[in-house]
Design a protein around this nucleic acid. Structure first.
Length: 553
DNA sequence: TATACTGAAA
DNA sequence: TATAGTTCAGTATA
């Protein structure tokens, strides 16, 4: 195609012209295998990575499809070397297989003896492999299954794990069918997960990931261990499971800081599992406390390093990872890939929105020009103080005030990172504030008041990043965030994406100080959502009160 | 004996 | 990059 929207370069970057009429179709076509790297106004940069290509491969795409997609949308002839490279990278996935051998147990089987020879020569596999059976097979100690997969990914030969799983202890679980059924994409996600065995399901916030978990549990009907980020989330899982499945309160245990119950379905927090005392992990026994048939990782992108290590030992059990965003800022995506599994299902956020299951959202970046004195302070500040200085610029108070006024009557969340700033804002707005030090009872009271509409504005800290369920929230105003965290941005947008009763559009504002690191971090944070098709409108803070709409990006 | 508060840890 | 949230254990309170 001579006028395609895509420029494919030999350094493995893909440049997408955003205003091209085929841009949307192209974005959709390359999404399964390319990662968005930068998203300024006119040209978005995607990158081809081995991990992206292997995920696509695991999802059933072959190299031919990827090559065809590139050729179809490319404006210029595609570098031949790049096409060869794509084909070679993709063909690396699955040349090694982990299989169950009737005599030798777990075996690493190579479709190509040379690959096995190369892998065996590496020092990194030395402690992980046992006896060599023949030219294409070598024994793997079952306890090294996860470590081996990690090493193989790093060596560039990701193994396809076909060794299967222990059944686990059977436990009858069915979905409660009182006039309610899973949504089509949830069914598909469960199917894809089961077909693949282990892996990750990526769905937007508010799209019902818990239901996918429940569906997987019903399908396997085994004892299940669910790992979640915090106690509040654990309670929400329990309530949802009681509502949506045949499980009763007695069958569901909570293993958290507060309680230590072990039941056929046990919900545990990452925190308690990774608690370290005197160099020991006293709660690790939970993993062996029962013969779990399924392990569910909620918010799998947050898995801390110790849980990765523990998970390496759990490879014989089915593992389902759930997340809204697989991206992490610490570059551990490959560990999720090798230890939980490849991406099994991924629905573009805009598709779910089009089906009406999440609310449409409009994202606006409000830029505030710092007064001269503040700019001088900023310019002379130490680099490590700069973000805080810019992010907590006093001028933001007025901007937030006018945004709240603009949406008067709509349930509004003001979200920030710095407690001082939030205290000040809460006072300014005459609104209530929820932070980590707010007692659970008080949080509950405020959330309830917010849900019923008694309170229309709530100022919240990082506590609101995850899993708080405020269906009615329609407006979010972000004043500061964790540096450039893409997944935090996605989670915060997620707070307002529950569909509204009247189908209203949700509004997401991010207030940044112009020409500072605050603006740079904001740009980085927005990348993931840009990849999902959310365009940020940029508005000048001074124009805000005059009702200008700004320019679309 | 149960519950509330505080500080430390990773 | 630093900050904030979470949990646990020790101490105070009723």
């Amino acid at each position: 195609m001579p006028d395609g929207p895509l420029i494919v370069q030999s350094d493995k970057t893909l440049l997408l012209e955003v205003d091209h009429e085929q841009a949307a179709a192209c974005r959709r076509a390359i999404a399964p295998f390319a990662e968005l790297e930068r998203a300024p106004e006119h040209v978005h940069t995607y990158r081809l990575t081995p991990l992206g290509l292997w995920n696509a491969r695991a999802a059933g795409h072959d190299a031919e499809q990827v090559v065809d997609t590139l050729l179809e949308y490319s404006r210029y002839p595609v570098p031949h070397a790049l096409l060869v490279d794509v084909a070679e990278t993709m063909s690396r996935y699955g040349r090694l297989q982990l299989v169950a051998h009737p005599v030798h147990g777990l075996v690493l089987h190579a479709l190509d003896p040379a690959v096995l020879a190369e892998v065996l020569r590496s020092k990194r596999t030395s402690g992980l492999l046992g006896e060599r059976i023949d030219a294409t097979d070598v024994v793997v100690h079952p306890s090294q299954r996860g470590h081996l997969k990690q090493v193989l990914v790093k060596l560039g030969w990701p193994a396809e794990d076909l060794a299967g799983y222990v059944d686990g202890e059977a436990h009858a679980i069915s979905l409660a069918q009182d006039g309610w059924t899973m949504r089509p994409y949830q069914e598909q996600a469960v199917d894809s997960f089961f077909h693949g065995g282990s892996g990750v399901v990526v769905l937007p916030c508010g799209a019902g990931k818990t239901i996918v978990g429940a569906g997987a549990m019903a399908r396997s009907s085994t004892t299940t261990l669910i790992l979640v980020t915090n106690t509040v989330s654990a309670r929400q899982w329990r309530d949802e499971l009681i509502r949506r499945t045949s499980l009763t309160e007695d069958e569901i245990g909570e293993y958290s800081g507060a309680r230590k119950e072990i039941r056929p379905v046990t919900i545990a927090t990452y925190q308690v599992l990774t608690l370290k005392r005197k160099g020991m992990y006293p709660h690790l026994e939970l993993l062996d406390a029962r013969d779990w048939g399924l392990v569910v990782y909620d918010e799998v992108h947050l898995l801390p390093a110790p849980v990765f290590r523990m998970t390496a030992d759990l490879q014989a059990r089915r593992r389902l990872g759930l997340t809204a965003t697989l991206v992490r800022e610490d570059g551990r995506e490959d560990e999720v890939f090798s230890l939980i599994g490849p991406k099994r299902f991924d629905a573009p956020w805009k598709d779910i929105e089009a089906q009406g299951y999440v609310a449409p959202a409009e994202c606006v970046e409000v830029r505030l020009t710092l007064p001269d004195t503040a700019r001088m302070t900023y310019a002379t500040a130490e680099p490590e103080e700069r973000y805080r200085l810019a992010a907590t610029a006093p001028g933001k108070n007025r901007v937030v005030e006018s945004l709240v006024a603009r949406h008067r009557g709509e349930p509004t969340l003001v979200i920030g990172q710095y407690l001082d700033q939030l205290h000040e804002l809460a006072e300014h707005l005459g609104a209530d504030l929820i932070t980590g030090e707010t007692p659970v009872r008080e949080r509950q009271r405020l959330f309830d008041a917010f849900r019923t509409g008694e309170i229309s504005t709530l100022v919240v800290s990082k506590v609101a990043n995850f899993s708080i369920d405020l269906p009615e929230a329609a407006v979010a105003i972000q004043v500061s965030g964790s540096f450039g965290s893409r997944q935090e941005e996605a989670q915060r947008l997620g707070r307002i994406m529950r569909p509204k009763a009247d189908g209203r559009t949700a509004h997401f504002y991010t207030v940044v100080a112009r020409d500072t690191v605050d603006q740079d971090f904001a740009a980085h944070r927005q990348r993931f959502l840009a990849e999902q098709g959310y365009a940020y409108t940029i508005v000048d803070a001074e124009d805000l009160e005059q009702g200008s709409t700004g320019q679309r990006v």
